[in-house]
Amino acid sequence: MNPFQTFKGLVCPIDRTNVDTDQIIPKQFLKRVERKGFGACLFYNWRFDENGNKKPDFILNQPKYTGSSILVARDNFGCGSSREHAPWALQDFGFRVVIAPSFADIFYNNCQKNGILAIRLDADRVDDLIRLASQDRFMLKVDLNQQKLTADDFNETFDIDPYQKEMLLKGLDEIAITMTYEHEIADYEKRQAVIQ
Rank of each mutant, 00 (worst) to 15 (best):
P13L: 02
G9S: 09
L10D: 02
K31N: 14
L30D: 13
Q28A: 14
D20C: 04
G9Y: 09
D22H: 05
V33N: 07
D15G: 01
F29Y: 12
K8R: 13
L30R: 15
K8V: 04
F29E: 07
R16P: 11
D20M: 00
I14P: 14
R32W: 04
D22A: 04
V33W: 09
I14E: 11
D20Q: 01
V11E: 03
P13K: 03
I25G: 13
F29W: 05
P13M: 02
V33F: 14
D22G: 05
L10E: 03
T21I: 03
F7C: 03
F29R: 06
T17M: 14
L30G: 12
C12G: 09
V19W: 10
R16T: 09
P13G: 06
Q5M: 01
I24E: 10
D20E: 05
I24W: 07
Q5T: 12
I25E: 13
I14T: 10
N18E: 12
D15P: 00
D20P: 00
L10R: 04
F4Q: 03
Q5G: 04
K8T: 11
K8S: 06
T17C: 11
K27H: 11
Q23H: 03
C12I: 12
P13F: 01
D15T: 04
R32E: 07
D22R: 06
N18W: 09
N18K: 05
Q23R: 07
N18P: 11
F29S: 06
Q5F: 02
D22P: 09
T17D: 15
I25P: 13
T21G: 01
K27Q: 11
V33D: 10
R32C: 00
V19R: 09
T21Q: 00
Q28K: 14
G9E: 08
L30V: 07
D20T: 03
T17K: 15
P26S: 08
I24F: 07
T6R: 06
Q5Y: 05
K31C: 10
T6H: 05
V11T: 03
R32K: 10
V19M: 11
I24T: 09
T6Y: 00
Q28N: 06
F7P: 04
Q28T: 11
K8A: 01
V19D: 12
T6V: 07
N18D: 15
R32S: 09
G9F: 08
I25A: 14
T17H: 13
P26K: 06
P13C: 02
D20F: 00
P26W: 07
L30Y: 11
Q23S: 03
I25Y: 10
I14Q: 10
F29I: 10
V19Q: 08
F4T: 03
K8D: 00
D15K: 07
K31D: 15
K31A: 14
V33H: 07
T17E: 15
Q28I: 12
T21P: 01
Q5S: 11
P26I: 08
F29V: 10
N18C: 06
K8Q: 12
Q28V: 13
L10W: 04
I14H: 09
F29T: 12
K31G: 15
I14S: 08
F4D: 02
C12H: 05
G9P: 15
V33Y: 10
T17Y: 13
V33R: 04
P13E: 02
D20Y: 00
Q23Y: 02
P13Y: 02
